[in-house]
Design a protein around this nucleic acid. Structure first.
Lengths: 153, 153
DNA sequence: ACAGGATCGTTCGAATTTGAACAACGCCGT
DNA sequence: ACGGCGTTGTTCAAATTCGAACGATCCTGT
C-alpha cells in the first residue's frame, strides 16, 4: 500500500466547502418540495426525467442509471408515484423482462404545480448566489467530474 | 404570485451538472466507507468533527448544526457510535440539559484506519479530477453559497 | 439449438432518516 | 422569586434507503 496522498489545505477547503454546500442545498430543496409540493426530491427527479423522455417513457434501469440511484430504491419510488396516479408502469415492447415507466397527465400537472416553488428555492440556495463566472466555473468543474465518473461504469 | 423566473440554459446546466455530480460523488464515497471501513458517511463526519473539537468534545446541537443534519438523526448516529465504543456521551458542564459527545481512543483509531481509503476515494471522484483553477473556483463558489446560507439561520 | 453468463426488475430484511411531540431545563424581564 | 418562553436532546411512528438474493428473461458463442 502506497503512502496516502493527504489533502493539502486547498484541496481540503474544496472538499469541506463542497460537503457543507451540498448538505445545505439539498436540505433546503428537499424541505421545500416536501412542504409545498408533497413530493420528495427523488420523486421530483423521476417526474422530470419521465417528462423529458416523452410518451415512450423510460425503462427502470435507464431511469436508475440517469438518476444515479439504486434499482431497489427506484422500484419503491416509482411504486409510490404509481399509487398516486402520477406514473404508469407498462411492459417494454422489446424486452419481456423490461418495465417502462411513463408520466401521466396527472403527473404532468403535479410537476407543473411543483415547479415554480422548486425553481425559486433552487435559485435561492444556489443559482442566484453565484455570478455568471462562478456559475460557469461550477458547471465546468461538475461536468469534468461527471464525464470522468460516467466512464468508470 | 409573481411570474416564475425559470432557469435559462446556463443556469439549468449548472443545476443539473451539480445534481449529477453530487449524486455520483456521494454514492462513491459512501460505498467506500461502508465497504472498507464499516462506517457510514454521517458517522465519519461525526468522528472528524469530534476529533477537531479536541478533548472538550461538542454539544449535540453544535454537532447537528455544523453537520447540517437533523437532531434526531444525530442522536441515532451518536448512539450507534457509542455502542461501538467510538464515542462517549457526557454531561455538559455549563448546562444540565446539555450532552457532550467526545471521541474515544478507539474512535481515533477507527478514524485513522478509515482515513486513507476515504481520502483516496475523495481524490478519485472529485479532487484529482479537477485542476488547480477548477478546484479554486469550486471552493470559491461553494464558500459563497455557504456564507449566504449560514446567515439565513 | 443450447448452455453459460449477463441483465432485468422486484422482494426482502435491516438500517437509517425525518419532523413532530415531549419532558426537562435555562434565561429573561419584572 | 417567578412566570413565560425558547432551547436541549430524546423518543416515536412512518417513510425511505440500500445491498443481496431471487426468478425470469436475454444474449452470445459454439
Amino acid at each position: 500500500m502506497a503512502n496516502t496522498r493527504w489533502l493539502d489545505d486547498g484541496e481540503m477547503a474544496a472538499w469541506t466547502s463542497f460537503l457543507e454546500a451540498t448538505h445545505r442545498v439539498f436540505r433546503e430543496v428537499e424541505a421545500q418540495l416536501r412542504d409545498e409540493a408533497g413530493l420528495s426530491h427523488p420523486q421530483y427527479e423521476i417526474l422530470i426525467k419521465l417528462t423529458d423522455a416523452g410518451p415512450d417513457g423510460l425503462r427502470m434501469t435507464e431511469l436508475a442509471t440517469t438518476l444515479i440511484t439504486s434499482k431497489s430504491g427506484l422500484t419503491y419510488q416509482v411504486g409510490q408515484l404509481e399509487k398516486r396516479g402520477l406514473v404508469t408502469r407498462g411492459a417494454c415492447p422489446t424486452d419481456t423482462r423490461g418495465v417502462t415507466a411513463r408520466i401521466t397527465p396527472a403527473g404532468t400537472d403535479a410537476l407543473r404545480a411543483a415547479a415554480p416553488g422548486h425553481v425559486e428555492r433552487v435559485r435561492a440556495v444556489l443559482i442566484d448566489l453565484l455570478d455568471r463566472e462562478q456559475l460557469a466555473a461550477v458547471t465546468d468543474a461538475m461536468n469534468s467530474v461527471n464525464a470522468r465518473l460516467r466512464e468508470e461504469n
